[in-house]
Structure formats: structure tokens, C-alpha cells
Design a protein around this nucleic acid. Structure first.
Length: 899
RNA sequence: GGGCGCUUAGCUCAGUGGUAGAGCGGCGGUUUUACACACCGUUGGUCGGCGGUUCGAAUCCGUCAGCGCCCACCA
């Protein structure tokens, strides 16, 4: 016997362990089945499951379970990402807490050992949590981006790209994070609005005492590194100054005034100071005019005078070398304050304007990034992007919803060189070695590099390895093929590449999706996946982004504890409309928790009525309209579910399951079945039971991808599991149903009849306890035959004592309603208010009349009749006829009841 | 500054040319032997504004407004 209520907590862990232990999640490269592959977006190894993961992985699990049941050899590849900066931070924080030596004191090797230790102890959190969600990942294949195999792939890619000239070292400005002391890529920079000031500084013109060129800047501290002032070539105000020099205050260096289109006469003072080593635009200007590019800030953003010390010149009233020397080692913001104050004292500060502008910040450190002139490794993304753009243009990879392709194209068509080196320790160390003279050797191993050097120099030379590691996204970009063996030629690689679907959020289209497509095409010769399914962000019920500071985060594990994994999963599916963010509320989850209970109770009802799986039931042999109707409805629901899943419409899939199960199967079919099940044994009861068990089996299978736990549990408890677990059961297929159209027509009629009776009784405030005969007036032979066949169900659901044709006079003061050609009469004169019944009928008549008038107006229009398609016109004619018939019936009903 | 998206019932959202839908909520009723996490009934909308195309527009086009997101080097 099924328990009185469904308790998810009691079954989830047991079922999951059963699936995992039985190998139900395993792909099989040796199977002849067609593969279906999804690569998990590898979560950070430091991570724990948040609601966004829950959504992303629920959707993937739905697809994987669905295809697996369809007989595909499903591979859902699990794994985690080493998350360079994030992980290094976590371990450094841990070291600080423990009060031991810090990273630098430990040294690189010891520190890395410590990180690996941490990973072994704490790195499994998120994979455990994915299990709670029910995710059917192929765990024995779990990979980590720093695994030996994946690291091989990284080295191979690095070496090959280098040899192809698609990866190179360059000394240019990078986004430098002064907190983490590393370069970061453009993507890791986010602009934030900052309220600052615009300082107008006076630069004295050389040889013209009392004349100043005023420059406006938001970053006065970088003036130490100025090497020019630029004015617009057309700007009359400054024309005579071009070619002359100005004295840079504080450091006393004379710098040229150059004419450059970059300078905008409308902005600031119209003259702009040029600091090539600390500003991306100035860098370009510096290149154009062959200017010096001294850096005046060190890695931590502190003033550094090394590169300008020699050129400083004492100039009375303009330069103050002692002051400048005092700045050395000061933080950039402290230096800014000091410089502004000193310039003010020296009367070289013209004015200060309040100024709000966008300032680039490191996305992880949160501090303003500092453009810094350094040597870094770059990938020639522009070249790699071309075939990737083409692949999406030609539909080899399709984004869904399609609109995201625009986002992809916009970025890819304007892609910049990708800075891939990071000054961190945790990550893939760059496979490049340097000879004492700086000559670089890129190789898979130190030995290979040494051999190259020997070849080059004709003798052994001491090589030192590049200290830097690669951007974490460099290894993530290889994920679709590195996880399945590349660069080895494994059976997995042959079978599961390219993958079918990538499911992810729009926020990592640039970081990850685009780069996988580029690398996949370049190294595998084919796109890494056919479809990119982009979903929205999970927000709170008010539409706000969930964040710790707002205190509105919903923890998926808590939700699973309270409502069960199935309810959480189903809710996420039901809300996952295409391209829309999800507003998640507790109420919605509770609603779908109720759905799980409903399924449980429907199964209980079936169990109580001896409805059990029967292999010998042949749907094609069903004779009764009731069983034909429900079998046909199950076919339709299944078709809807399939179409929805094919189109990645998880919301439509959930809705199709929900409606059929609740409204179709529970509300109508089981109610109709009750009289039969309570009636005498015989072929009729056997067929209804057969249809019921068949449809319940279809429901459990159809719902399994979204609600794996409760469906698996019921599958076994109801006895469907003789052949094995539901997770491996075949996906249901449509069954042949004879006479489906007739069955539909009949059941539709019964439903309409019952609904009409219920409505009028309710509207006339007839207590449910009052039961009366149900009389049919003007009914066709077919209707009467149906009434006879469905007498028990109609009486039960319509609170009637009997249903029969009206013979003779209509009863006085009956409640009436029109169903098709027939008029229903309920002799209730004693209990109702006849005036109210007249009013009700009149209102109904007026409603129909209103609709008929609209139809008539349409048909009365010559343009409509002559220009609309014939079938539409005919439809209108039919509609009008039906409306007129119904009005006539209502008129008759009113006449009967007339006082 | 450029691009994208959204605006439909109190709330959350479906609905890509032919009588406006769902869920939740609200309201009224019900111990009908699976289920009150239930059942039955019901109330809610000139589909953001304006203009156009069309026999016909929530749906296509234009425009305006509001909201949101992404990208961008503006001193």
C-alpha cells in the first residue's frame, strides 16, 4: 500500500544511490546506440550549488533523461573548473585564518601542494549537491581542468597555437589588477560609475612666462608619466602651440604639444595630457607620435619613479623634485590627493569640476584596474573568430533563442587579442622557457625546450620556465574535447564529439561559449555542439537579482529539503520560458509540490482499485469510448511534450505534463472511471483498468525527466518496475487508437453536459445535497444514446437522480441550459427563485446576441465576404448559425418559464 | 553613445493575422468512499500610447513613452 502522503526526503537519497550504483548514468562508447552528449558547464571547484546551477542542471538533466529513455547513448559529462583566482583566494584566506606563513613565504611548490590538499578535502561540495538535485551525470567520467589529461590538452593547444603564429608575446598595455597583481582580460573588467572630479591643471608653456596650457584630467597622479599634451589639429585656440613644449609641473620635464585627432575640442579644456603607459588611448597617441612611455605606478598601484627619475628637472615655481621623491611608494589615490594639494599651493590648479564617469574595475577584486605596460601572452582571437562566426552564420551551431546570435556576432566581429597569461600560481603554468638572453622556447616539456635551445645555440643553456599561468578560460575553452581524451584518439572522442546541446546562461557567451566554438573548430575541425540553449537568470519573486547583500538568495538545497527535489526541478522547468529571466517564488514551488502530491494520490487511487501494470493490455483493442478517449488524450499530451522538448521549451513540456495529468487524467478520466470501477466485474471494467494502468505508466515515464524521484518510486511501488528502473525505461510512444475522433466527440459532449449542469446549479445556488432528475428536451438520438451510456457518470458528477428524455410537458419552473441541439431541464421549481432563473437566461441570451451581432456585422460587410478566404467566411456563417440556434433555444426556455 | 529585450486579467507569464488564455490570487460553495497540498463554480483585460498595412492586428510596419540588460577609450 502506498503511504497516505508523499515524503520526498524518505526516498530521494535511496533512489539516487540506486541509480548511481547500477550504472544507470553511464554512457557506453561501445554501444551501437546513437550518442547524445551534453557537457556540463564545469562549476568552480570552490563553488556550492546556487539556484542558477539548479536551473542550468535541471534543464540539462531533463534533456539527458529524455534522450536516454529514447534509447540514445547519453553522455552527460561532469567535472569542475580549477577557477584560478577564486581558488587561490580561498586557500590564501584559509592560510591567513590559520595564522601560518602566507603564499609567498611558503613558496610556489608548497603553496600548490596546499591547494591540492584543499581540493581533496573540500572540492567535492558541488558535485555532492548536484546529486541532491537528481542530476544524472556520468560520475566515473568526472574531470577537473587541472587533471593530467586536461593539462596535456592545454599544453598541446598552447604549443600548436604558438607554432601557428596564433599565440604570441607582446609588450603593450593590459588591464592590471593591483589587488591580485595580475593581468586580466577585457572580459574580466567591468565598468562602474564613479563620482569623481575633473581637475584642470596648468602646464606652463616653455619660454613664454605666464602662459599656460590647461589640461583637464580625472587622474592627476598619472601626470608624472606624461610625455606630451595633445590638441586637435583644427583647434584654433592651440594652433600656435603645436610643436612647442610645455613644462610638466612637479617633475619639470619639458614635453611636446602634439596635434592629434584624438583630442576632442569639446571635452575638458580641449587639451589632453598624454600618459602612454597608463591609459589605452594615450598609448595609441604615444605610438603615433613616437613618445616615451614611462611607467610611474608599480604593480600594486604605488608611485614608482625609476623610469622618470633621471629626466626630472628642478624649475622654480613649477617643479618640486623633493615633493615628487616623497611620493615614491605612495598609493595611487594618496598620491592623487597629495599632487592636487601641491598643485593648488603652486597655483597650477585652474579649477575642479565634479565629474561622474565610468571607471574600469576588476570583476573579482572590485578595485579599479590600472592599465599597465607589461609583457604578456596573447591569443590571436581575431583569426580564430572568423571560422566561428561562419559556423554560426551557416547554422552549424544554432543558438536558441536565436536572438543571442546577434550578441555573439557583435562581440566576435570586434574581438580583441585575448590576454591569456596571469601572474598567479594556481593554474596551468605556461609551457615556455627562456634562455638567459630572453630567447623563448615553447614546448610540451622542459626536455623538449632544452633540445630546442641546444639546437638553436649549439650547446646546452640554462633555461628558466615562464612563471605565469594561463587564464582559467583557456582550459575551459577546450572542455568539449579535452574531457573525452583529446589529444589522444579515444573512442569517447570519436563518439561524443561534437556534442548535441550546450545549456548555459547568457552571461558566459563571451567568456566560454564563443571560445569553445573557436577552439573546437580550430582543433577538432568541427563545432563543439549543435545547439546552444540559453536560459535566463533566476531572480527573486520581485524580479530582483539574488544576492547576499540583498538577503534574498534562495538556497536550492534548503528548497529541496522542504519541498523535495522534484518540486524544485518542476518549478524551474515550468518557469523556464525562452529568453526570459525567472521570477522564482516559494508559492510557485509549493504549487508544484502539490502537483507531486496529486500524482501520488492518483496512483494511490489506482492501487486501491486494483489498477496494476498488465503486459497483456493492448491499447489497440480498446473498445470503450472512455478508454479510447484517454488513450488518445495521452497520445496528444505526449506529442506536445515531445515537440516542446525538441524545441527546448521546458515550460511547455512541464505544462503539457501538468494539464494532462491533473485535468485530463485526474479530474475527468478517473471520475468517469469510478462508476465502472465500482460496478460489476467484467470486460468493461477490465478494459478501463487496462487503459488506466497504461496511461498512468505513460504519465510516469513522461514526467520522469522533470520529476525523476517520485516517478521512479511510483514506478516500482505500482509494479511497473518488473523490467527494471524507470530511468532506463523506454520513452512512451503514441499508441494506435481506433475511433479516436468519435470517442473525443462523445466525451466532449459528456464533459460539456456535466459542466453546464454544474454551472447552472452553482449559479442558482442549488445545494449539492439536492438531487433531481435531469431531463433532455429536443435531444437527438445520438445524444440520448450517449446520455444512456453515461448515465451513471453524469448522475454522479451532475448530482442527478436519473437522466432521460423529456416525455410530454416541460416541468414548470425548471432550471434550463442549452447543450448543442438539446436543452437540459432540472426540475427545481421548489428550491430556486424563478425570477433569478429568468434573469440568468436573459443574461445568457444577451451575451449570445452580442456575439451574434458581431458575427453578423462581419458577414454583412461586402469587403469581408469578397476578400477574406472562403473557409473563413464559411466559418463565420457556421458560427452565426450556431449562435442563432442557441438564441432560439434560450428564447424557448424563457418562454417556458415565463411568469 | 551603440545594440538587444520587455510592456497582455490583482500577481507571474503563454499566445508570430481570423470569436483574448493558463497558473496563482480573489469571491462563492462542498467532509461526493485518491487527494482540503483537494473538489466544483465564478469574478478579472479598449493586449503601454499614437499612426500605418490588411476584409480583419495582441500578433506585421513606423513612431513615442516607461522598464531592464549588454557593449563602448571619452580627458
Amino acid at each position: 500500500m502506498l503511504d497516505k502522503s508523499f515524503d520526498p526526503a524518505a526516498i530521494e537519497q535511496r533512489l539516487y544511490q540506486g541509480w548511481e550504483a547500477s550504472g544507470a548514468f553511464s554512457a557506453d562508447p561501445s554501444s551501437p546506440a546513437k550518442p547524445f552528449t551534453i557537457m556540463i558547464p564545469p562549476p568552480n571547484v570552490t563553488g556550492s550549488l546556487h539556484i542558477g546551477h539548479a536551473l542550468d542542471n535541471t534543464l540539462q538533466d531533463v534533456l539527458i533523461r529524455w534522450r536516454r529513455m529514447q534509447g540514445r547513448d547519453a553522455l552527460w559529462q561532469p567535472g569542475t573548473d580549477h577557477a584560478g583566482i577564486a581558488t587561490q583566494m580561498v586557500v590564501e584566506r584559509l592560510l591567513a585564518q590559520q595564522g601560518g606563513p602566507d603564499r609567498r613565504a611558503m613558496g610556489r611548490e608548497a603553496f600548490l601542494n596546499r591547494v591540492w590538499e584543499w581540493k581533496a578535502e573540500s572540492g567535492g561540495t558541488i558535485t555532492r549537491q548536484l546529486r541532491r538535485l537528481g542530476a544524472s551525470l556520468d560520475w566515473p567520467r568526472e574531470r577537473f581542468t587541472m587533471d593530467e589529461g586536461l593539462s596535456d590538452a592545454v599544453r598541446e593547444v598552447f604549443v600548436r597555437l604558438y607554432r601557428e603564429g596564433l599565440l604570441y608575446r607582446d609588450r603593450r598595455l593590459v588591464n592590471w589588477d593591483p589587488k591580485f597583481l595580475t593581468a586580466i582580460s577585457d572580459l574580466e573588467v567591468e565598468s562602474k560609475e564613479v563620482k569623481g572630479s575633473l581637475w584642470h591643471l596648468r602646464y606652463p608653456v616653455e619660454g613664454e612666462p605666464g602662459r599656460f596650457l590647461v589640461v583637464a584630467t580625472t587622474r592627476p597622479e598619472t601626470m608624472l608619466g606624461d610625455t606630451a599634451v595633445a590638441v586637435h589639429p583644427e583647434d584654433e585656440r592651440f594652433r600656435d602651440l603645436v610643436g612647442k613644449r610645455v613644462i610638466l609641473p612637479l617633475t619639470g620635464r619639458a614635453i611636446p604639444v602634439v596635434a592629434d585627432e584624438y583630442s576632442d575640442p569639446e571635452k575638458g579644456s580641449g587639451a589632453v595630457k598624454i600618459t602612454p603607459a597608463h591609459d589605452f588611448n594615450d598609448f595609441e597617441v604615444g605610438r603615433r607620435h613616437a613618445l616615451g612611455m614611462p611607467s610611474v605606478l608599480d604593480a600594486e598601484g604605488r608611485v614608482m619613479l625609476d623610469e622618470i627619475a633621471a629626466s626630472m628637472v628642478a624649475v622654480d615655481g613649477v617643479a618640486d623634485l623633493d615633493f615628487v621623491r616623497g611620493l615614491a611608494g605612495q598609493d595611487r589615490f594618496a598620491a592623487r590627493k597629495a599632487i592636487v594639494a601641491r598643485l593648488e599651493e603652486m597655483e597650477l590648479l585652474e579649477k575642479i569640476e565634479p565629474h561622474t564617469h565610468m571607471v574600469p574595475h576588476g570583476d573579482r577584486s572590485g578595485v579599479p584596474i590600472e592599465p599597465r605596460l607589461t609583457m604578456q601572452w596573447y591569443v590571436d582571437a581575431k583569426t580564430l573568430a572568423q571560422p566561428a562566426i561562419k559556423a554560426v552564420e551557416t547554422g552549424q551551431t544554432v543558438f536558441t533563442p536565436r536572438q543571442w546570435e546577434n550578441t555573439f556576432f557583435a562581440w566576435m566581429r570586434d574581438i580583441q587579442p585575448w590576454c591569456v597569461s596571469r601572474q598567479l600560481w594556481w593554474g596551468h603554468q605556461i609551457p615556455a622557457w627562456y634562455a638567459p638572453d630572453g630567447e623563448v622556447f615553447v614546448a610540451h616539456t622542459a626536455e623538449e625546450a632544452a633540445a630546442q635551445a641546444r639546437e638553436k645555440f649549439g650547446r646546452d643553456v640554462e633555461l628558466t620556465r615562464d612563471e605565469d599561468v594561463l587564464d582559467t578560460w583557456f582550459s575551459s575553452a577546450l572542455w568539449p574535447f579535452s574531457t573525452i581524451g583529446w589529444p589522444e584518439k579515444t573512442p569517447e572522442l570519436a563518439k561524443y564529439y561534437p556534442g548535441d546541446v550546450l545549456v548555459t546562461g547568457f552571461d558566459i557567451i563571451f567568456f566560454w561559449v564563443a571560445r569553445m566554438i573557436m577552439m573546437g573548430i580550430h582543433f577538432m575541425g568541427e563545432v563543439p555542439f549543435r545547439t546552444v540553449c540559453i536560459h535566463g537568470l533566476v531572480r527573486d519573486e520581485k524580479g530582483q537579482k539574488m544576492s547576499k547583500s540583498r538577503g534574498n538568495v534562495m538556497d536550492p538545497l534548503e528548497l529541496i529539503d522542504v519541498h523535495g527535489a522534484d518540486a524544485v526541478r518542476f518549478t524551474l522547468c515550468a518557469l523556464a520560458g525562452p529568453g526570459r529571466d525567472i521570477k522564482l517564488s516559494k508559492q510557485r514551488i509549493e504549487g508544484y509540490r502539490a502537483f507531486a502530491t496529486k500524482i501520488w494520490n492518483a496512483s494511490r487511487f489506482c492501487e486501491m482499485n486494483g489498477i496494476a501494470p498488465r503486459a497483456d493490455f493492448d491499447p489497440a483493442s480498446a473498445r470503450l469510448p472512455l478508454s479510447r478517449w484517454i488513450l488518445d488524450a495521452a497520445n496528444a499530451a505526449l506529442a506536445d511534450a515531445n515537440a516542446a522538448l525538441e524545441a527546448f521549451r521546458f515550460d511547455d513540456y512541464a505544462l503539457a505534463c501538468y494539464r494532462f495529468t491533473w485535468n485530463g487524467f485526474c479530474d475527468w478520466f478517473l471520475e468517469f472511471a469510478k462508476p465502472v470501477l465500482n460496478g460489476p466485474d467484467g470486460p468493461e471494467k477490465e478494459e478501463v483498468k487496462g487503459a488506466a494502468q497504461h496511461v498512468l505508466g505513460t504519465i510516469l515515464r513522461m514526467l520522469h525527466p522533470a520529476m525523476p524521484f517520485i516517478t521512479e518510486e511510483l514506478w516500482h511501488r505500482m509494479g511497473y518496475g518488473a523490467e527494471g528502473s524507470l530511468i532506463r525505461a523506454p520513452w512512451p510512444e503514441a499508441v494506435p487508437v481506433e475511433g479516436a475522433a468519435e470517442a473525443r466527440a462523445e466525451l466532449d459532449w459528456v464533459v460539456r453536459l456535466v459542466s453546464e449542469v454544474r454551472t447552472v446549479r452553482s449559479e442558482m445556488n442549488v445545494a449539492p445535497s439536492i438531487t433531481v432528475p435531469l431531463l433532455l428536451s429536443g435531444a437527438s438520438g445520438e445524444s440520448l444514446a450517449r446520455a444512456a451510456r453515461w448515465s451513471d457518470a453524469i448522475c454522479r458528477l451532475g448530482r442527478a437522480t436519473e437522466i432521460r428524455a423529456l416525455d410530454g410537458e416541460a416541468p414548470r419552473g425548471a432550471v434550463q441550459a442549452v447543450v448543442g441541439e438539446a436543452t437540459i431541464m432540472l426540475p427545481l421549481a421548489d428550491v430556486i427563485d424563478l425570477a433569478a432563473e429568468r434573469a440568468r437566461l436573459a443574461k445568457e441570451r444577451a451575451r449570445i446576441a452580442g456575439e451574434a451581432a458581431k458575427t453578423e456585422a462581419k458577414l454583412g460587410s461586402d469587403v469581408f465576404v469578397s476578400r477574406a478566404p472562403e473557409e473563413i467566411v464559411q466559418e463565420m456563417r457556421d458560427r452565426l448559425e450556431a449562435q442563432q440556434t442557441e438564441m432560439a433555444r434560450l428564447d424557448a426556455a424563457m418562454a417556458r418559464i415565463a411568469g
